[in-house]
């Protein structure tokens, strides 16, 4: 049984993914996560197959859980900032 995923649901998970990615304390992980999320949604923008959309939606949900957990761990063992962050 494949349920229809609405546009608002997709937009909402996209925004949450970006919001969670912003929280990575590690500069490189943060930059990568934001870039990867943006590019993944851009890449799958024209997806019409319901099954594929469902699969990608599930993948996004799995990843948001990973990001949330890893943000917490990263926060626990964070280091001083990189030279490049101190410059900006």
């Amino acid at each position: 049984m494949v349920s229809n995923i609405s546009k608002t649901q997709i937009l909402s998970i996209y925004k949450s993914l970006l919001r969670e990615s912003e929280k990575f304390s590690n500069y490189n992980f943060r930059s990568y996560a934001i870039r990867r999320v943006r590019d993944a949604f851009k890449e799958h923008k024209s997806l019409t197959d319901k099954n594929l959309i469902n699969k990608e939606y599930q993948f996004a949900k799995d990843n948001i859980a990973i990001i949330k957990r890893q943000v917490v761990i990263g926060e626990m063992y964070k280091t001083e900032k990189l030279v490049i962050e101190n410059q900006q």
Partner: peptide, 26 residues
């Protein structure tokens, strides 16, 4: 004059552990 940790440009020596990998290992 710059302060902070150096940037990592030595990916052939080793690479950082991907958070997704750590998540699978934990």
């Amino acid at each position: 004059e710059e302060i902070g940790r150096p940037l990592y440009f030595d990916a052939q020596a080793t690479t950082p552990l991907d958070p997704r990998v750590l998540d699978a290992m934990l």
